[in-house]
Design a protein around this nucleic acid. Structure first.
Lengths: 356, 356
DNA sequence: ATCTAGTGTGCATACGTATGAAGCAATCGG
DNA sequence: CCGATTGCTTCATACGTATGCACACTAGAT
């Protein structure tokens, strides 16, 4: 028996009316007193507080939501939780949202698009973080029509909205520069999906960076695929069959790169002696001794938290504290776009090309 | 301009009254028609459906929740999302809950215990999945007092409730048997926290299994710590300083084991030549070529999904479909307890002890 | 003593949906 | 031809909180 209620009664279904009765005031006064309305006298506040405490009163979120039309819930839409990348967005998102007084509802896009959209616009969330990839769906347009505020996180779409992204083109360039500097000429790439801004921009930047050095990607050394472990594992096998094989591979993100490294380990391919591998994101796993992945770092945690702040500011109509470091100077009433700077991180998966 | 509404009006704030007006019926009739109440005539249903479609009506979840006292939301409480273990619970949980018509709210226990508890019992969720470790907190008791149904997932607590767990003792025994069979006598262990049933039971089983072979764990070869990567990394360093050092280490779960392997790689310790390492859970990462971790497998996916089903059955008062394979025969009205069978999976991180 | 300003509380009602009960019309049996 | 039954719909209201407005009461000014 842990600390039971002294009188053995249950604290279930206690409403503000019960508190009001006990405190000898009206229900609205309870509401005001507990919400800190300055018009309520100190004495009354004290009585109400005591009554609420005695009854173990917790305001009903449903009642509050219906009355205020504010749910204090934010949805987060991701592609696939078991992909090692997403937790590093979802974790910080959760923490920042909680700190801002919002709860997090989690959705994955696996569900039928139409049915899922229904559930998103039933006013049970105040806003939505889009961290998913399939932005070519009609979802953003639908959200726009329903006036449900949303923010792009690590992605961008055609429908205008707040967005927090890395400078993916610059990141791609950085990798190209490093590989060229190391002396590679036969370079391959495993880009992300075409229908993601992330995949597309990294590709553009990478190709541009190579072009600046007079290098072109051979089609046989290029793959596209989802940002998954298996994408990397499979692409490596295919590259090894190419003649000539590439001496370096740029991967759409770290998860893909780790898929490559893992497959290389299985196939006995020495990294970086036989093949240089570079990722993108610098998730914690990239720095494990097992991988020591050279990659492009950006502040994932800050990116997620910024997205949360942008969205909450928009949802709450409070545009004051919208200026974390890195915000574009675009202070207009329109969309905000935060771009984080990428940095190359040299670890142990890239080196000079093998001497033939 | 994607498909705009033909008349340019917005579908925001449409209520059942608007639908009723357009369909020429009363608001309650709209509610009944859309919910499939058999008392509504076919003709009326058709008219209401058309009106709802024309207005792009989506019922307000807040209104529905308030009226029915059912939120169709289930909370999931985890310790830390960025721990590679949890996504493998949260992912399947989300999918199963969605399939059952429930939405998922995600909470982490990082927040202040008291404040967090408040948010859990404000009737904004119908039930809670406890996948977190600190069950010695007062939370389960508080949930009990508030009559908020919950289920233990991969954990058990003192407050009676539905639970889905692996047979952790048996799992610990299995590992002990394997290590003994391989010829190890100087065996170490990195157990989970004392205040988790998971950590405790695996320890009990492991010690029992060793005792059956007449082997005891030396205190210098034993560590306890959270189920995290760093726990394993740090413990390995300490074990290497012991004299004699253990020739095999059982880890509280795979994440810890991978921490050990990673640290071994950094320190140049050969696995399994110099040290055997065994984990627990068989998360997908364990089978990566980079680790090839010998471990104890159980069906994580099924475990999570079963927890979701148990909880939803209890929440919805529907105890019918409560019999997935593996359920204990305990068909009484009390708590249900599902125990999954563990199996040893031999990969490449365990072998005979090194010849001295 | 009367009027004004200010302070604190209660009243009425909104928010959107669901549901028991009552009403109404049509059909049926006697 | 009337009462009973059935089928469909509306009425009234509940759910729990928040808030505009009216009202009561106190204190200070004239």
């Amino acid at each position: 028996m842990l600390d039971r209620d002294r009188n053995g009664e249950e604290d279930v279904g206690i409403t503000s009316r019960d508190v009001a009765r006990l405190a000898g005031v009206s229900q609205p006064t309870v509401s005001r007193a507990l919400r800190g309305d300055p018009r309520v006298s100190e004495d009354t506040v004290r009585r109400v507080r005591m009554a609420a405490e005695a009854l173990n009163y917790v305001p009903s979120e449903a009642g509050r939501s219906l009355s205020t039309q504010i749910s204090h819930r934010i949805g987060v839409l991701v592609t696939d939780l078991t992909n090692p990348f997403y937790p590093h967005l979802v974790g910080p998102l959760h923490d920042e949202l909680e700190q801002l007084g919002y709860r997090m509802m989690l959705f994955t896009e696996r569900s039928e698009a139409t049915a899922a959209a229904e559930r998103l616009v039933d006013r049970s969330i105040d806003g939505l973080v889009l961290a998913t990839s399939t932005l070519d769906s009609g979802l953003p347009a639908e959200l726009d029509r329903r006036r449900l505020p949303f923010v792009y996180l690590n992605r961008e779409g055609t429908v205008p909205a707040d967005a927090v992204v890395v400078d993916n083109r610059r990141g791609g360039e950085l990798v190209a520069e490093e590989l060229v500097k190391a002396g590679h000429t036969r370079i391959g790439a495993i880009f992300g999906p075409d229908n993601t801004s992330t995949g597309r921009d990294r590709e553009i930047g990478f190709r541009q960076g190579l072009a600046d050095a007079g290098i072109a990607l051979r089609p046989a050394h290029v793959r596209h695929g989802p940002f998954e472990f298996d994408t990397g594992a499979q692409a490596l096998a295919e590259f090894l069959g190419a003649d000539p094989a590439p001496t370096a591979v740029f991967c759409g993100n770290d998860v893909v790169a780790i898929g490559v490294i893992d497959a290389a380990r299985r196939l006995g391919v020495g990294i970086p002696e036989q093949l240089s591998v570079v990722g993108f994101d610098d998730i914690p796993m990239a720095s494990w001794a097992s991988f020591e992945l050279s990659t492009v770092r950006h502040d994932l945690d800050e990116m997620a938290r910024t997205a949360a702040r942008l969205l909450v500011a928009r949802v709450s109509g409070d545009d004051a504290d919208l200026h974390p470091s890195g915000v574009d100077g675009n202070g207009s009433a329109g969309q905000r776009r935060v771009t984080l700077e990428p940095h190359f991180v040299a670890r142990r998966t890239h080196a000079e090309p093998p001497q033939v």
